[in-house]
Amino acid sequence: MLPQNKRPPDIGEYVAASSVDAAIDALADGQGTALAGGTDLWAQKDSGNGRLRQRLVNISRVSELCGIAEVAGKIRIGALTTISEILESPLLNEKVPLLPQMANRFAAPQIRNAATIGGNIANASPAADAVLPLIGLGTSVELRSKRETRFLPLSGFFKGPGNTQMTADELITAIEFETPPGNFHGVFCKSGPRPALEISMVAMCLTGLLEGGKLSNPRLVFGAVGPTPICCEKTEAMIDGKTISDDLIASALDLMATEIAPIDDFRASKWYRTQMARTFLEAELIACR
């Protein structure tokens, strides 16, 4: 950054939390910022956008927050699980290949080694890749604070760029979703000239139960075409359980285009973002047939 634009953080206290309890203690007064992989937080640390509060709470050594496990038909992923661990997880590769597929398109290896699933959610970037398939999987976010432990559905978690339903004293501790059944179908698509190292101009996740060329209970989620991830509920209803004909695809593409809200900026125009969204959806609907 240019010196005149820097707003370096004023950190008065550092806590290296060794347990979830210690972490939520340190966050209890709303004056702390949880630090995990650092890929978002540290990159923005001098930008002056106020994300770093006066107490830095390093949670990166809290072992309770690590790990991927299946318990009673649910898959639980600790908030500190890195994108690399998702990519490499035998359990996920067997039962939810959608997540490793996303992880393979997520940034670069060094970033995947640092970025955590909890951090990707908490950062609430409109272009966050990991969030889309998790919404498609019906994920709940586990939030802990001194006050309570609560679960929120990820689909309604985001309020705007950098803004979520979380309160300042809360910590994302894990995410959970039901282990998808055998006929679960999920795909993740992403734009960009490079395989992965690319801030998403448009990303899409399409999930559902695929039987005989029909997708039932579909979820269609787009990233980077609005201030938050956008679930195209009307389009989902239109294709739910239907035979995927050329006419249906054409109608679904038009309806989807009314549900997303892409903007014009220097990275891409509204027209091109819409074109990408249409291309992804068309290809994936054809692939379902």
Partner: peptide, 23 residues
């Protein structure tokens, strides 16, 4: 380098794409 009204809009490797190995 995207320059609009004299200002540089993309002063980072994130938004200025040099070739990478897979390309």
């Amino acid at each position: 380098l995207k320059i609009v009204e004299g200002k540089v809009l993309n002063p980072s490797f994130r938004d200025y794409h040099v070739m990478t190995a897979p390309e």
